[in-house]
Design a protein around this nucleic acid. Structure first.
Lengths: 236, 236
DNA sequence: GAATTTATAGACCGGATGGACTAGATAGCG
DNA sequence: CGCTATCTAGTCCATCCGGTCTATAAATTC
């Protein structure tokens, strides 16, 4: 909408697939069924990256299942180049972990090879227009995986027989300051209590967390979600 | 498909919205346009939770923007109950952060009030069938936010003027052991060097990281992705 | 070959930390 | 009221830690 120039500009595409038959199949499909311009193809990730540097396409269709350098690593590298190239992962598997990793490293779309050709064209269109596109089915699978991982994280962090639960409020305050790398004297000043009191609290903390020194206490606190406790309640 | 019983079973729904007009509007819409069964409605989150415990619906439509207890907190609580209730967030805002937080805490869908009624019915249908549903537009926004957060994470962790980069290999080994809560004597034994050597290394580490003690050094290391350095390369 | 960096190690010192006790004040519970 | 938990504070003592300075061998760089 900004300028007339951008409007009818064909998106330029590079296709990467180690299987040459698939490659030419997809190429033909795109050339016949759509308005996009396939400027190059590659059967390996390393060649693809050279081509991308050379042609600076808008879109890259990347097969994930390739020998040698796999597609995910390739996508990560492309993202690191930061050329504004938008990559769509293309694969036969709808494994949630694969989808998650692809989206995490910056893929702008994820399409199954078994999907209808119209879907592929649509995906390219959406991605070329700056959107991120996941078909509803895959999106659903992604979110299941996404939510499961968060659920597990919350459980291990919040629940369980977390020794942090045995700390009194004052002890938590002291530990909180310790996790900021503050010395006993500093803690005493901040809490307006004597240094010996701090030491008493600290020793009790050691007992309860079953550790021997500050560093271990701090590490225990960090590894067991001490800092997250408040956030969980306030932020969500 | 499994049994005749499950096939035509109407999904039972509870609707929550602090605005009574919206509430009845949505209720009517669902009753007229779909086959679902609105078993109850509520204008506050706390009432809603009681009703959910009582009626055990399959689906809850939850308005996010409510005074008192907000919808996100309510969704989190419902998820904690673990009753198998599937919640769909319903709101006027397509703020990516809101979408992200809703999906993170376990919402099974996210619909804008401005969307067509057919979309709402479709969403309920999908969610009732065990899927997670985000309209393509919102899904796209979610992923932008999702990828941005990962990109930032990687940048702050890997690059930048990270003082950890100035450490020698030996110093890194020492720091690594310190981040495990090991004492100087222990480090000396593990590395087969004298304790005074460890102290020398540690003092150099303090200088380079510009900190004053072990705890601060460990905290610096953890906050600046010391442990991730290896993982970043292996995992992806 | 001289200069620099890194890893090693020692001495000395003072302050910080941790362990083991004791103990008073306060608040809550049965 | 007595019991318990919590917060407070103290003493004594041994050890650990951090600061500073010096020094040697090996490796690297110039």
């Amino acid at each position: 909408m900004r300028r007339g120039l951008e409007f009818k500009k064909k998106a330029r595409i590079i296709i990467v697939d180690d299987n040459y038959d698939h490659l030419s199949g997809i190429k033909e499909l795109i050339e016949i069924e759509s308005d996009f311009d396939v400027v190059a193809t590659a059967t390996s990730a390393s060649v693809a990256i050279s081509l991308i540097k050379k042609y600076r396409p808008e879109i890259v269709l990347m097969d994930i299942n390739m020998p040698e350098k796999d597609g995910l690593t390739a996508i990560a590298e492309i993202e690191k180049l930061d050329l504004g190239v938008r990559t769509i992962a293309l694969t036969g598997y709808d494994d949630p972990d694969l989808i998650f990793r692809a989206m995490k490293i910056g893929a702008k779309g994820y399409i199954l090879k078994t999907m209808a050709s119209a879907q592929l064209i649509y995906a390219i269109d959406e991605v070329a227009n700056g959107k991120i596109y996941l078909p509803a089915t895959l999106s659903s699978r992604f979110f299941e995986y996404f939510q499961k991982s968060f659920k597990e994280e919350n459980q291990t962090v919040v629940d369980e027989d977390n020794l942090l639960n045995y700390l009194t409020q004052r002890e938590e305050e002291v530990l909180d300051l310790l996790t900021q790398g503050i010395t006993y004297k500093g803690v005493a000043q901040k809490l307006f209590i004597s240094e010996t009191t701090v030491k008493t609290h600290v020793n009790n903390i050691f007992q309860k967390l079953q550790v021997n020194d500050r560093t271990q206490a701090v590490l225990y606190a960090l590894n067991n979600g001490f800092l997250n406790r408040r956030k969980v309640k306030i932020a969500i």
